[in-house]
């Protein structure tokens, strides 16, 4: 890299998808005319679906990193339903859907089979990705996920977090943010929306398993996401990437704002973007233009009850405090390290 490239210009830097003046090998996977489009056109995701985008970003990157030697296991959920309704599938890679809560274990089985086949000289070095939404990961699939982590099975698990059970009609999951309206946490009563003090942040729990690699990412920073997937595929053992994928339907945002919402989540500190190895934080993607959480909350109808004539100032302050805690804990205002 020349000194010039210390500045990320769009021609050579990392903010845009492509960088026409970068050496081809340094360009993003998504910029490639021959990218795999692992998730093909014709899927039935909603307009502006963050999960469809995140899945293609991640799986294409994994395909690229493994020289297309990849098998994916998929949890029940939006991604599964919109990609594989009989008689058509959008997946261009070997892919299996078993159940809602067992994806990590299915992937373990795939990895075990691959290992034996390779040992026997009957197969190539094929790699495994498991993927699911936040419900399939942080709730119903959590047991299998933790087991896969603990055994350090050779699986990259990718969670596409849109903060709820969107496929079944936007119900609350353990990844639904505080105060958010869902079909099961209506904005009613003394504590409207999803209660504070509940839910879990699985990346931190994954770190507690001391697995080789844990990372978070969003669909707003493609290069970061691709780098993390590529890095993960360069490692062995249990790996976990948690990708924030805004859901226009569940969040009540405009379909064109999906990337913008992910960007705001990161820039406000609501969603920390970092990586960790063997339980230790190794880097964080710095906030570039610090913003108050209102900027993130306001465009979303699921937080509409916090605004209006009598804004819920205290509730907003509590969400701001959560973001501030993320900023402190993950060092999000430090100089950019990536």
């Amino acid at each position: 890299m020349s000194a010039l490239q210390t500045v990320k210009f769009y021609q050579t830097g990392t903010f845009t998808v492509g960088n026409r003046l970068l050496a081809p090998e340094d360009r993003s996977v998504q910029a490639n005319m021959q990218r795999t489009n692992s998730l093909n056109s014709g899927h039935r995701a909603c307009q502006g679906c963050g999960e469809a985008l995140g899945a293609r970003y991640a799986i294409d990157a994994a395909m690229n990193a493994t020289n297309r030697q990849l098998i994916a296991a998929n949890a029940t959920g939006c991604l599964e339903v919109f990609s594989t309704p009989y008689p058509e599938t959008s997946w261009q890679i070997p892919w299996i859907h078993s159940l809602f809560g067992n994806t990590a274990a299915v992937a373990t089985g795939i990895a075990a089979a691959i290992k034996v086949k390779k040992q026997k000289g009957q197969g190539q070095d094929v790699r495994v990705v498991a993927q699911g939404g936040d419900g399939g990961t942080t709730d119903i699939g959590f047991g299998c996920l933790s087991g896969m982590f603990e055994r350090n099975d050779d699986v990259l698990y990718i969670c596409y977090d849109n903060g709820g059970y969107m496929n079944t009609g936007v119900q609350r999951s353990s990844a639904t943010p505080s105060a958010a309206r869902t079909a099961t946490t209506m904005p009613l009563g003394p504590e409207p929306g999803n209660p504070f003090g509940q839910g879990k942040f699985v990346p931190a729990i994954a770190m507690a398993h001391e697995i080789p690699y844990v990372a978070t990412a969003t669909v707003a920073d493609l290069r970061d996401l691709e780098n993390k997937v590529t890095k993960a595929m360069g490692m062995r053992g249990a790996r976990y990437i948690h990708i924030l994928v805004p859901c226009p339907l569940g969040w009540g945002t405009a379909s064109q704002d999906t990337i913008r919402m992910a960007r705001l989540a990161k820039e406000t500190g609501v969603f920390p973007v970092f990586e960790a190895e063997y339980g230790e934080l190794t880097s964080a993607l710095a906030i570039r233009r610090p913003l108050p959480v209102e900027d993130y909350l306001k465009p979303q109808k699921r937080f509409a009850h916090l605004f209006g004539k009598n804004p819920a100032v205290e509730t907003i302050a509590r969400i701001q405090a959560q973001a501030d805690k993320n900023i402190r804990r993950y060092g999000l205002l430090a100089k950019e390290t990536v």
Partner: peptide, 28 residues
């Protein structure tokens, strides 16, 4: 030889691992 023995965390996981490995062509 040439056999992976996996201590899983539940029977649900046991059958799920079996699904994955069988679908990948391993005698399970």
């Amino acid at each position: 030889k040439d056999c992976e023995f996996i201590n899983v965390e539940s029977e649900f996981a046991a059958m799920s691992v079996a699904i994955g490995s069988s679908a990948t062509g391993a005698r399970t």
